[in-house]
């Protein structure tokens, strides 16, 4: 049986959108897939050692379930993002959902390959020393080298 492969492009850097790439990658690896995640644009935030700036905002996110109805004017107030993030993290913990750090570690343990888009690293002037290891730096052509051979390819 040949090893199945999966590639994911992670482009978002918010708390809610950070979960799908890591959940799918760790699960696929557990199922025996050879997995690669290509982090680009805001997805690069997910490679930083410190993930405390990966947050969730109720603003422009009308689908986010809130304990009480919250007018947009209130959502705009300073500190709302921090409050929403804290509440979401508490909720995740209460339901036994792993933290992003834990899921990311499980991915690395399972040999999921992390690739950072060099162009967006330069564009946003990210300091590579702020990123975890191991991370490879490459471009779109390198991504297709792997993605072209995959059974599953997802854009998140």
């Amino acid at each position: 049986m040949t090893t199945k492969k999966m590639a994911i492009i992670a482009t978002k850097g918010t708390l809610d959108m950070a979960y799908p790439p890591f959940i799918l990658a760790s699960t696929a690896a557990a199922l025996g897939y050879d997995v690669q995640i290509f982090f680009t644009f805001y997805g690069l935030q997910l490679l930083r050692k410190d993930l405390s700036n990966v947050m969730i905002s109720p603003l422009a996110n009308p689908a986010m379930p809130m304990p009480i109805p919250m007018p947009v004017m209130v959502q705009m107030l300073p500190g709302m993002e921090s409050i929403a993030t804290m509440m979401m993290k508490q909720k995740l913990k209460k339901h036994g959902v792993a933290s992003l750090e834990e899921l990311r570690d499980l991915c690395l343990e399972a040999d999921v390959k992390f690739v950072a888009c060099q162009m967006t690293v330069d564009l946003f002037e990210f300091d590579k020393s702020e990123f975890i290891e191991p991370v490879e730096y490459a471009g779109a052509a390198a991504f297709f080298g792997f993605a072209g051979e995959t059974d599953i390819c997802l854009f998140v």
């Binding site: 690896a29 557990a30 899921l103 399972a110």
Partner: peptide, 30 residues
């Protein structure tokens, strides 16, 4: 108490050091 994907990912990890034919008992609430 663990939610998706932890029961699966950690079941896989638990199986790693076991021998072929051995049985792993997994308890989950998810």
């Amino acid at each position: 108490g663990m939610s998706c994907p932890l029961p699966i990912v950690k079941t896989k990890k638990a199986l790693v050091d076991m021998a072929s034919g051995q049985v792993l008992k997994v308890i989950a609430t998810d």
